[in-house]
Amino acid sequence: MYKKLIIGSVIALSGFIAGALSRQPEINELKKQVRSLQAEVEKLHGVIEQQNNQIHELKVRYQALKGWQFVQKSQQRGYIRGSIMYQYALKEYLEMLIAADHTGEVNLNDSEVHFYNAFGTILNKGKITDKDRDIVINYISEKYKKEIDSFQEPDLSNIMEYIN
């Protein structure tokens, strides 16, 4: 009985070993596929990480461009505001000259005289000092702040009629 049990066990063990050995190529193939899939997963993780870095970089660039655009927009507003202010200064200056031509006399208060002299120096000599610039800016800003802030250009039609 022990012999049959031992023989049965040996046969079972040999069958198991034979079965395992006969399936070993399949097991080896499966292990190879698992290693290949693990390598592929690692590559995909690398690609995903690289894409995340690129997305982060693009977001940073986008924010920088938005900031740059804001700065450019602000500068353009400043240029436009300065140009409109210059147009109002020219309008005031020419209206003072036209009024003096019509009446044959100059009737200007102190702030108008200071403006006239400062803007005349800027216009005729092409020389801008801080003092003259400040006088012109203060005079024009006091008189036309609302129009300048709303980027409204002056009406120069009366001056153009007079010139023509």
Results as ranks from 00 to 15, higher is better:
K145Y: 06
S14D: 13
L108T: 07
S22P: 00
R133Q: 04
Y144N: 07
A64N: 15
G82H: 04
D155Q: 09
W68N: 15
S150Q: 13
Y86L: 14
Y139I: 12
I11E: 11
I48V: 15
S83N: 15
V41F: 01
G126I: 07
N164H: 12
A100N: 08
S36P: 12
S150R: 10
G46N: 09
N107C: 04
G67T: 10
G78P: 00
L90Q: 09
I98W: 04
H45W: 03
F115E: 06
L94D: 10
S150C: 00
F70K: 11
K127D: 14
M96E: 14
N158I: 09
P154H: 03
L44N: 13
I55K: 02
K4G: 11
N164Q: 13
Q75W: 04
L97S: 13
S141R: 08
Q63G: 10
D101G: 04
G15K: 08
Q51D: 08
L108R: 03
L123N: 04
Y116F: 15
M85E: 13
L94P: 03
A64T: 14
E112V: 14
H102P: 00
Q51T: 12
A18Y: 11
L58H: 02
I128L: 05
Y62D: 12
Y144F: 09
Q75I: 14
E95G: 06
S150L: 05
E92Y: 02
V10L: 15
N117H: 02
E26C: 02
Y62H: 08
E105W: 05
N107S: 11
Q152C: 07
M1G: 11
L123D: 09
K4A: 11
D149L: 03
I17Y: 08
Y79A: 05
K73S: 11
E92D: 13
K131A: 06
K91G: 04
V71W: 00
E57N: 11
I148G: 01
T129F: 00
M1H: 08
T103A: 12
E26V: 13
A100V: 14
L30Y: 02
S74N: 07
R23C: 05
S22F: 06
Q51H: 10
G67K: 06
E147G: 06
R61S: 14
L44W: 03
E112Y: 07
N52L: 07
I7V: 15
E95A: 08
G15Q: 07
S141P: 01
V10W: 05
G15T: 10
A20W: 07
V10D: 11
N107E: 09
I128A: 01
G82A: 15
L108P: 04
Y162I: 12
S157W: 00
W68D: 15
K43V: 15
F16R: 02
V71D: 10
I55F: 01
N107R: 05
E112R: 05
L44D: 08
G8W: 05
E142N: 12
G126N: 03
Q75D: 09
G67M: 06
V106C: 03
L37H: 06
Q54W: 01
Q54R: 07
M160I: 15
